[in-house]
Design a protein around this nucleic acid. Structure first.
Length: 695
RNA sequence: GGGCGGGUAGCUCAGUGGCAGAGCAUCACGUUUACACCGUGAAGGUCGUGGGUUCAAAUCCCACCCCGCCCACCA
């Protein structure tokens, strides 16, 4: 690539970008020279394709990678992808549905084969798309969260936790999707506003009279074990300590006090149903109430009285009819309320008790809190520390098991003769005998890990479990806001627990990319923008420019396509500025004296100011402001003024011209890597531009 | 319900105590030998509303209105 390329008046990114990327690839590896600057990538889901969130996040990191490299650091980051449990399983199930099949038709083994096929076909797509963004990733070390070594790490972590008493198995109410047939974490739940009925039901008191309870779910009343009121509720306080009778089956219900009751809802009296409500379960724990379940995993009534086997909606109607016969319905009101539905399939969820594996969070949350308080990790912008601390301070134990099929199986073995009450936690099939049946007939559980349990260990796998074992911890990770708790917090306590060190020093919570109207982008609503289409239209450098130009470290970004067009024009401006440079410079002999014209002095001063400003702003993650300053410098100070002084007679110094043009190229490179590399070749250079020193 | 952020030119946004800014869009002029994906210039704003502090407020304080995001979820 020589100077002849400048015969063209306009820059065509499509002719060069891919070639330049391929030229760089070998140089993206760690060089082993200089102080490492390590970036931790957020592994995209194998279901994913590039969206503007990924684009922003990774372009920020790549810009910093190149900046740091030019500061003399050995910048390093590795690519990887996440198996993403439920998300992937549901995508494959959707494919099956087109063939008229469900996963149960295939059976577990064949279904998992299908998911692996899917992974082989689509798993790497988003990584290929990362190449299109020009990311300086070391492609010789791609990791996947179901790689053999990775799986071993996750098992080892589980065993460690287990040996130290952090893991337990318990029967607990969990959010359960009757369609997906699995428990879900809080984060996999959506709420849908729905019009429903609020039933006011009379519960007789044992010593005469009655109280009225408001509920939207009468079918769960058969699992009631108490009634509760708020301690500040003076109106109802006289009821405390009395006994109520559960209609239809006449179970005795103590009336207790608990602060979780909202005195303003309904009559201010809550029926406590620990098996089918998470709040009620908490109340139940505090008051040592029993756990009675009346709904099963199919959302059908279990074996209680005459309602057994009915689905929950039919049962609701029958129970209401019966209460009406007994004259125990005071009134029925319309109410708007939020129904919990499965994030993936939108089925209404049931809270039901299920045997699940839990991780004790109290100590671990403390580790994560202290790590940030002691500044072992810095969270930027600082305003995100509050939600981080709030979440950790109010944390519940983490349900880490899922009953889906796609994922990593727990290293847990159940006795085939005695059932799942007898189990062994072990890496390999246990040889010991069951304490009950005295036989060794162990079967590995089909339960899999919550995908976030696996992701929480990502830094070990990608940084430590490289052969060199020397990249842990990272310097920087960037994250979307909504996974601050799900991912970032969990990586922090996992790192502190297993490695005694936080997995990274700085977390940058980047802005959310919103639509022009300020709404969240959403594929299902059809208001997303596809970055690949933008690349096809404008090229990678222009996209990078456009998105970084709009970016602020503190504020969300309302996406606007115009700055990308502006970027395309800017690239052309740069192209032509260097065309002019190469045409002009050949006509001028290098001066022997180091005399500077006033234009020379002015542009050098301006370059220095710009550089200092850009340094400061990049360190503060204010890439938008940095780029705006560079834009102003290059276009308006360099092109509009300084270059003009080279037309006609000039007293300028050609050495300064060369110096300024080379320095500008370096300044632009982290933001606009491809074009600047191309022009760098025209200066007779054969190395990557990011090997140049920034200052 | 709790938390966080935003409201500045038609649009997207800079600007945190000292004469209101940029890009795009608009208008006028200019085919000046790097670039019409250009240049020169113009027009355009009661800085959400009301009050307060100050010599001075877009900027600091208080109240309110509107918009958005995150978290929790009311039985």
């Amino acid at each position: 690539m020589k100077k002849e390329i400048f015969e063209k008046k306009a820059y065509d990114p499509f002719e060069f970008e891919e070639k330049i990327y391929n030229f760089w690839i070998p140089y993206f590896k760690p060089r082993g020279k200089g102080k490492p600057f390590i970036i931790l990538i957020a592994p995209p889901n194998i279901t994913g394709s590039l969206h503007l969130g990924h684009t922003l996040q990774n372009v920020i990191l790549d810009t910093i990678w190149r900046y740091k490299k030019m500061q003399g650091y050995d910048s390093i980051w590795f690519p990887g992808i996440d198996h993403a449990g439920i998300a992937t399983q549901n995508v494959v199930e959707k494919e099956l549905r087109k063939e008229g099949l469900t996963r149960f038709d295939l059976g577990r083994e064949k279904f998992i084969d299908r998911v692996w096929q899917w992974k082989e076909k689509y798993g790497g797509i988003i990584l290929e798309q990362f190449k299109k963004l020009g990311l300086a990733l070391d492609w010789s070390r791609v990791k996947f969260t179901l790689d053999k070594e990775y799986v071993a790490w996750v098992e080892k972590a589980f065993l460690d936790y287990y040996k130290k008493g952090y893991i337990y198995r318990d029967l607990r109410p969990v959010n359960f999707c009757p369609r997906c047939q699995t428990s879900l974490s809080d984060l996999e739940i959506e709420y849908k506003e729905t019009e429903g009925e609020l039933y006011y039901i009379k519960y007789p008191l044992k010593l005469g009279g009655f109280v009225i309870i408001a509920t939207t779910r009468p079918e769960t009343m058969l699992a009631d074990v108490a009634l509760a009121i708020n301690p500040k509720d003076e109106k109802n306080f006289h009821l405390v300590g009395k006994i109520a009778l559960l209609p239809i089956i006449n179970r005795e219900l103590p009336i207790i006090v608990d602060q979780r009751v909202d005195p303003k809802f309904g009559t201010g009296i809550l029926k406590v149903t620990p098996a089918h409500s998470l709040v009620d379960y908490e109340i139940g724990l505090r008051h040592q109430l029993p756990l009675i379940s009346v709904i099963d995993t199919q959302a059908k009534m279990t074996d209680v009285s005459e309602f057994s086997g009915l689905d929950y909606l039919t049962a609701r109607q029958k129970i209401v009819d019966r209460l009406k016969e007994l004259n125990l319905i005071e009134k029925i009101e319309k109410i708007k309320h939020n129904l919990p539905v499965c994030e993936r399939c939108k089925t209404e969820l049931q809270v039901i008790p299920s045997k699940e594996w839990f991780l004790k969070m109290k100590d671990l949350a403390q580790l994560a809190i202290r790590a940030v308080k002691n500044k072992e990790v810095e969270i930027y912008p600082a305003k995100f520390k509050k939600p981080y601390f709030d979440w950790l301070r109010n944390i519940r134990d983490w349900c880490i098991s899922r009953k889906i099929w796609w994922g990593q199986q727990l290293p847990v073995w159940y006795c085939q003769n005695c059932g799942d009450e007898k189990y062994v936690v072990s890496f390999k099939k246990p040889k010991i005998k069951c304490s009950q049946c005295k036989k060794s007939n162990w079967q590995r559980t089909e339960e899999v890990f919550d995908t976030w349990f696996s992701s929480a260990l990502w830094p070990f796998a990608i940084l430590y479990y490289q052969k060199e074992k020397k990249w842990y911890p990272a310097d920087l990770v960037a994250s979307a806001r909504e996974i601050l708790q799900l991912w970032i917090a969990r990586m922090i306590f996992s790192g502190k627990f297993f490695m005694k060190k936080t997995p990274f020093k700085t977390v940058f919570i980047h802005p959310t990319v919103l639509t022009k109207e300020g709404k969240r982008m959403s594929k299902s609503l059809g208001i997303g923008v596809d970055p690949l289409e933008l690349i096809e239209k404008y090229g990678t450098d222009a996209l990078r420019f456009g998105i970084l130009f709009q970016m602020s470290a503190h504020q969300d970004l309302r996406f606007d396509e115009r700055p990308i067009d502006q970027g395309k024009k800017f690239l052309n401006k740069i192209w032509n500025a260097y065309r002019f440079y190469f045409l002009t410079i050949s006509k001028h002999k290098v001066l022997k004296e180091n005399s500077l014209s006033s234009a020379d002095k002015k542009i050098l001063a301006s370059l220095k100011i710009t550089k200092n400003f850009v340094n400061r702003k990049i360190e503060d993650f204010e890439l938008g402001l940095a780029l705006k300053r560079i834009y102003k410098f290059f276009w308006h100070e360099l092109c509009d003024i300084y270059l003009e002084t080279w037309k006609g007679e000039t007293k300028n110094n050609p050495q300064i011209f060369r110096q300024v043009m080379l320095e500008s190229l370096k300044l632009l490179h982290p933001f606009i890597p491809h074009l600047t590399q191309l022009i760098y070749f025209s200066f007779g250079q054969k190395k990557p531009l990011f090997f140049e020193k920034w200052q």
